[in-house]
Design a binder for these strands. Sequence first.
DNA 1: TCTGGGGTCCTAGGACCC
DNA 2: TCTGGGGTCCTAGGACCC
Length: 405
Amino acid sequence: MRQRIIFHIDVNNAFLSWTAVKMLQEGSHQDIRKIASVIGGNEQERHGIVLAKSPIAKKYGITTAETLYSARRKYPQLKTYPPDYAWYYNESNIMYNYLTQYTPKIERYSIDECFLDLTGTSYLYKDYLKLAYQIKNDIKNKFGFTVNVGIGNNKLCAKMASDFEKPDKVHTLYQSEIETKMWPLPVGDLFMVGKSTSLKLQKLGIITIRDLANTNYKKLEKYFKSQARLLVEFANGIDYSKVTMRSSKSESISVSETLPYDCADIEKLKEILFRQTEEVTRTLREQKQYAKTVAITYKNSYFETYQKQTKLQTPENRTINIYKVIIKILEDSWKDEAIRNIGVRLSDFTDVREEQVSLFTNPQTNHLDDMQEIIDNINKKYGTTSVMPASIKKIGNSSHHKKRL
DNA sequence: TCTGGGGTCCTAGGACCC
DNA sequence: TCTGGGGTCCTAGGACCC
């Protein structure tokens, strides 16, 4: 089989870089990439963790996902800036649109990462290394932020390559370079080896990627089940997955939020859940899909997480009908405890609502769909949940006594 | 002032049917 | 009276990613 040529483009410190770009565009004279700075949420609202850090902040030992409080203890003069997700999507789109000129085989892996499949384009691009530098420099000059470009014969190697030295670098990890460039790395650096897997591997005496590559996966199956084979293949730089234009339709849709204070008031929780249900069902309707599984996710004061789900008889996408289910799950599952974080998740999608009973068509069904569309349009114009069916308030309150008694 | 938010995929174990 | 397995569907929970 012909060797594939895959590029992985990865924005350096994406959120921080993009905020820096915005600030400079707005006339700021300081580039926050060049000082000790981080992007982080609002601490008063308990969203205070580090989402992205500058290289200097990194030098002080500040890591992604640690609390701003802890980060500031490492470096008290640290500058913090709030995230601007709308702007980030904007910047992400700009980069994606730029990259589409090189190949239609492009996969948007996340908000700040893309895979490009350039296999069979050698008549267009004589020197892939040169092309990678061109892409990297183009993005820097046109858009003002830097990327790493990784080149490999599959997605795994391209991704591992882009993770080597940062920022503003091009690296290759061709099949022939795996032993020298990848095998010496600690096993935790391998894609798909997180904290827990890394710990288990180390206990088995597997410290570097080389150690893992030279292990018979059969020996690991006891500990890692079906994951074992994949791990050993990855360590050997083997990956057959394709670069796919993933459809905008997702497998699940969810929202969750950490509350400003731990909440044990079920009425308050119902209000929050209504807003969240509205949000996820609207996205679902935009995708023209119906969900069969509905779930609530919780985090309590002790940071213990759990989730409760229900399978529906018929797929749904209307706010009110899903909200009824959500309320039922809440009442059945809530342990009368203070909640730190709560959320709604929809999954198990279908394109059509397969009505179980087809003998009698229900004229109300279409009527309700029309109604939902009208509500969606009004809410789009005037802001979320300015209009909600009166019956929702009733549902929300109906069970109050039940739980209390 | 400890600990965000949005995803995907896999497995264990219980219920139920044959 | 005691007790089979296989298959499927479902829920809960955990691991990973950015």
